[in-house]
């Protein structure tokens, strides 16, 4: 179990660093969703299922949708024919 926890924590760090090194905002959002998924698994391992459910529903689901919508209303999604 400790190995899984260490792997997840390392994944958190990698995601947090990688989100800064993107030049486009779309991969940042996807990396943030991955960060939230790993964080919710870590909450379960830390015996906090309340937080895990909330993180999975809000942090991964709804936040990603809202960020994508914000990008779309900024006409920032490349290749979708949206900004034309």
């Amino acid at each position: 179990m400790a190995a899984i926890e260490t792997l997840l924590l390392l994944g958190l760090i990698v995601c947090a660093v990688a989100a800064n090194f993107t030049r486009n905002l779309l991969p940042t959002i996807i990396i943030y969703a991955a960060f939230g998924t790993m964080l919710s698994v870590i909450w379960i391992l830390l015996k906090a299922p309340d937080l895990a459910i909330t993180e999975a529903a809000v942090g991964v689901g709804i936040d990603t949708i809202l960020f994508l919508l914000a990008l779309r209303s900024m006409h920032h999604l490349d290749g979708t024919g949206d900004g034309k």
């Binding site: 309340d50 459910i53 529903a57 949708i65």
Partner: peptide
Amino acid sequence: SPGGGFAGGSILGGALI
């Protein structure tokens, strides 16, 4: 059980979306 207003409400909101 684990859960409550915030988690359940956001699941309902996601279902509406």
